[in-house]
Design a protein around this nucleic acid. Structure first.
Lengths: 150, 150
DNA sequence: TATTGTTATACTCTATAACTATA
DNA sequence: TATAGTTATAGAGTATAACAATA
């Protein structure tokens, strides 16, 4: 296996990054899937639950409970499309946008802590190399692995 | 959040690496926790289930079913310590050692595929940077995140 | 009484399949 | 009949607590 191979380290450090980010999200009383959903809505508001489920690579049924929770909390809204009343378009509320800003701050602090051992040029280099892999593997830009199937 | 921040990309690419490795382990009919346990035993045979659970950062109860499965399969053995018959020392069998070699091959192919977009010097650079982070964060060397708590 | 491992129980998360309402 | 979303059911995985054997 090679204790320190790049792939092994990637899985190891990546899991650590995800876990720590999860912990920090906990301070906002959010789970990674919730944050991923908020982010997906923020990227392109007004889409149906199906469209978002497809982007996130998950089954539409899984969104229901997530949407319920975030709606109860006042972070997002379902709005029925008057032209086709089967569709629920999803939007962030004011509070939801504020929440996204908080997530952004948390992510920033997380990123700084995670790469604290690197200087600026090393951090940029790491980012470049990871981006090359992400593009090669066609990982959807901006879709955090809070959803299992990426 | 910064769509392409180093931390975000790390979680994203790391999750992809873990998932792909999981798929490849499937060819050997192994799960990530099983592979992690085999590896832990291979690193230092003869330890008790408790000692291994502690290294893996998991509850000892979780090992029971894993050890059962791998023992039924003939990959590992429980041996009672005659001096303290409460302890079950764990060892790899011949077949278990062969299985570890297969895992090594699978991991090698996995690593080559994952970093296919990089040349040798870039791969080495990535490895160096990740290792710096792993050391900074005191991630246990050689413990794959098949176990949630790393 | 303390410790190792096991068993039993419950809980979380997710996937799958039926159902409803709209079209 | 087909589609969007919901609800119901079941399954995997894991954590917690009670238990038995040994010290």
């Amino acid at each position: 296996m090679g204790t320190g191979s790049a792939a092994f380290l990637l899985a190891q450090v990546g899991a650590y990054a995800a876990r720590k980010f999860d912990e920090r999200l906990g301070e906002l009383e959010l789970t990674p899937p919730q944050a991923g959903l908020l982010r997906a809505i923020a990227m392109q508001p007004g889409r149906s639950q199906q469209a978002i489920a497809e982007q996130l690579g998950t089954a539409p049924t899984r969104l229901v409970a997530l949407v319920d929770g975030l709606e109860r909390r006042g972070a997002i809204q379902r709005r029925r499309n008057p032209d086709d009343r089967r569709l629920h378009a999803l939007f962030l509320t004011e509070g939801g946008q504020q929440l996204m800003r908080s997530i952004g701050q948390v992510a920033m602090a997380h990123g700084a802590d995670l790469t604290a051992a690197l200087d600026d040029s090393e951090r940029a280099q790491l980012q470049r190399l990871l981006l090359r892999i992400a593009e090669d593997k066609k990982l959807a830009a901006g879709v955090h692995p809070g959803f299992g199937s990426i």
